[in-house]
Write a protein that binds this DNA or RNA. Structure first.
Lengths: 241, 241
DNA sequence: TCAAACATTATTGTCGACAATCTATATTGT
DNA sequence: ACAATATAGATTGTCGACAATAATGTTTGA
């Protein structure tokens, strides 16, 4: 399996220390497998079977399952077992609502708390994205990577440990899972780039109120884009049927 | 130990099923102990010692510790051990920032998604708080309970499972811990009551935008109140010293 | 006397086995 | 034939012991 930039980035952040224990390694492997759909969404998890597959004890596997549960990637019921979470449209929209609130606030905090160096770094990153974009116009792949990179930097820039933990430590794995499951290749690539630019501008000008508003609109636009897509799909299927 | 309304409420919500397994029970006991300060903040957790105290195996204890970690009440380092989280002023303010974002959004969603029955229920609850308030003017205790009740109802009213999980399942235990540790007996009791009334009004009128704004101001006011207190304390200590 | 390397101790991570609980099939009675 | 019960199977929760890692104290050398 080839690990692209985003998957590596998602793990190589301050909230995630490098895996030292075997439970950590198994956790990461299962994380990839679930996010990429190798372990299907909604499927039941058999502890004895998986323990055999990874050649570890059930105790160690359960330790890994506990971490997956912390990321909201699996759900456990007492005396029944674990299931991989389902990826429903409703769940996706709920996730966008949470992101709009949290990342909006993170953006406001970033405008206050980011160092000048961090802001310069973000500007450099954006310029690099612009180059990549010019090279591969229309190919959304790199833009997607860039999108995740961008959001990550903003969140870290908030310097709010609670925000960082919730967003980077837990929710973003779910976000990536949804992106893979629904195969979203951002048709908003060019628009998103412009929106990113304006957000960084607001942060650079230390205008927290504006920065929050722009970030919320940025995420809300993505959500509405999805809602429209869904509405169109429903429309087309109902007319063809 | 007497369990007051808020502690019971905090556990008896849709996100927390009744404890069936022994690990669940130990988790709840430790939860109370940490929140109430019986297990001191910042203290190291000895697995063998605690296992002996609760008369359970280390495996079971570790299961309980995993749940505590999910609530951000303890922190684990590989091959080192677990520590109860420290309650710093900075951490408290960070928590308020997160709450402002999430509960604000929950309030907006509640304005859209609450049923008419739920709204009536909230109004009834508020009326009851008004009675209690009249009976015990100046005694902040019941108002505090009412405050938690109120916020809980709003969050559940959002009908957003992600929001409910994060706020009710994880963050609120931390909130309660901070309240106990810093002994906050809400000097804003009467003000808070009026703010609650206006928020419910906005929800009843299905005005999500206003509801979010009011909730954010409500929480931000609490935060600033604390910031002022801290500032005064610093001032007084610096002048007396 | 101090610093560094070593040895010892204690704690955490991992393992395999047993007990308690749930699920599914088969049986029995109406 | 259908429903309810009972039984068999599998799965999860819990336990105690061992291995690996970190922290402590001791010894040795300069």
């Amino acid at each position: 399996m080839i690990l692209n930039v985003s998957t590596i980035m998602a793990l190589d952040n301050p909230t995630t220390r490098t895996a030292v224990t075997t439970a950590d390694k198994v956790f990461e492997q299962m994380l990839y497998a679930i996010v990429n759909g190798n372990i299907k969404a909604g499927s039941k998890i058999s502890e004895p079977e998986l323990a055999k597959n990874y050649q570890i004890s059930r105790s160690t596997l359960r330790e890994a399952l506990n971490r997956l549960e912390k990321c909201h990637l699996i759900e456990r019921k007492a005396n029944v077992g674990s299931r991989v979470v389902e990826c429903s449209i409703a769940g996706l929209l709920e996730l966008y609502i949470v992101r709009e609130a949290l990342e909006g606030m993170a953006c406001r905090q970033a405008a206050s708390n980011m160092t000048d160096d961090e802001i310069l770094e973000m500007k450099a990153m954006l310029a690099q994205h612009a180059n990549v974009k010019a090279l591969r116009e229309g190919v959304a792949y790199y833009q997607e990577e860039g999108d995740l990179d961008f959001h990550y930097k903003v969140i870290l820039g908030s310097h709010n440990q609670q925000l960082i933990n919730i967003l980077c430590g837990q929710l973003y794995h779910l976000v990536r899972m949804y992106r893979c499951q629904f195969g979203m290749n951002s048709p908003r690539a060019t628009k998103a780039f412009d929106e990113h630019s304006r957000i960084i501008e607001a942060i650079a000008e230390r205008d927290g109120e504006l920065a929050e508003m722009l970030m919320r609109r940025h995420i809300a636009a993505s959500r509405k884009n999805i809602e429209n897509k869904i509405a169109q799909q429903k429309l087309s299927t109902s007319t063809t049927a």
